[in-house]
């Protein structure tokens, strides 16, 4: 398609867009460059380029070994929280979304609408009551305290439902039933395969959601050995700001890069699933 736009305004738009790109990329560029600097260099060479002697290895060693490797533990915790939550949430949401799409009995519709409505309940409004619930279940400061509430993904149910409506033809399911397959087999052998793109998207969304979650672990966890990476970095940063600990800007910065890498990789590798999650969000309008 060729729209009528004069060359001069095309050039202007291009320049504008380069500035826009710089706005979005510069902070990340600064973060990566800063991970190559020592604490002293962060303040001496504030220019956003690489310092004379690169200290990335030294920073990484310090990051992963400081305080008997607490950051290593935080990253492992993040994988545990995000992995377990995403696995459970995806399984539950896929089964439920499939059921809502393919059985569709009148009594189910009310339940579905309640679930859909809950997408609009601000999650932070739940954090405090969840804290009280976890306290009465003695799950404060445990892995379960973070994982159990993260198993609920109403958006995942919705996403799977709209995908199953189109992506899983009734005829295939009916053919399998005539061949004598049970409902259980129909789901696991046939439907689950057809649902794979939706499942991958739900997994990705719940994994990243839990990895990035701050408010819930902040409230539920109180010993730093249980912290996920995000919470740990916040702890270091506030110690830093209060001047309690030794200066560790370099470690917070290097840690921030390390804690972002798994997500960045998932975005690059799984772009098509992300786009699916995004478009299904916009289709609802």
């Amino acid at each position: 398609m060729q729209t009528k736009v004069p060359l001069s305004s095309r050039a202007a738009v291009t320049v504008l867009f380069i500035l826009v790109a710089i706005y979005f990329v510069f902070p990340l560029y600064w973060l990566v460059v800063s991970a190559f600097k020592t604490n002293a260099q962060l303040f001496q060479y504030i220019q956003p380029w690489f310092p004379p002697h690169l200290s990335i290895i030294k920073n990484l060693v310090e990051l992963f070994s400081y305080n008997s490797g607490e950051f290593t533990r935080w990253i492992a915790n993040s994988f545990i929280y995000a992995g377990a939550s995403a696995l459970g949430a995806t399984l539950f949401a896929t089964m439920a979304g499939y059921s809502f799409a393919k059985y569709d009995y009148p009594w189910m519709r009310t339940i579905f609408w309640i679930i859909l409505g809950s997408i609009f309940v601000p999650v932070t409004a739940l954090v405090l009551p969840v804290f009280v619930l976890m306290e009465s279940l003695h799950l404060i400061n445990t892995y379960w305290g973070v994982i159990l509430p993260s198993l609920v993904s109403p958006f995942g149910v919705y996403l799977t439902r709209i995908y199953a409506d189109q992506g899983v033809p009734d005829a295939i399911l009916e053919a399998a039933r005539i061949d004598g397959a049970s409902e259980w087999t129909v789901f696991w052998r046939i439907a689950s395969r057809l649902l794979a793109p939706a499942t991958a998207t739900v997994f990705l969304i719940t994994f990243v959601g839990t990895w990035n979650n701050f408010f819930l672990p902040l409230v539920v966890l109180n010993s730093s050995s249980k912290f996920p990476a995000i919470l740990g970095l916040n702890l270091w940063n506030s110690l830093n700001a209060e001047g309690h600990a030794k200066l560790m800007y370099n470690m917070v910065i290097t840690g921030a890069v390390v804690a972002t890498i798994p997500l960045a990789i998932s975005f690059i590798l799984l772009q098509r699933y992300w786009r699916f999650g995004l478009t299904s969000g916009s289709v609802t309008g």
């Binding site: 459970g88 399984l91 539950f92 949401a93 089964m95 439920a96 499939y98 059921s99 809502f100 059985y103 009995y105 189910m108 339940i111 679930i115 809950s118 309940v121 739940l126 009551p129 969840v130 009280v132 619930l133 159990l148 509430p149 198993l151 609920v152 109403p154 149910v157 409902e183 259980w184 789901f187």
Partner: peptide
């Protein structure tokens, strides 16, 4: 079966969404 498929979700939904409210 329809109920069985939504049951796991319903349990966590009620347990960690409805009950906290």
């Amino acid at each position: 079966y329809a109920l069985m498929f939504i049951l796991p979700f319903l349990v966590v939904f009620i347990g960690f969404y409805v009950i906290p409210i």
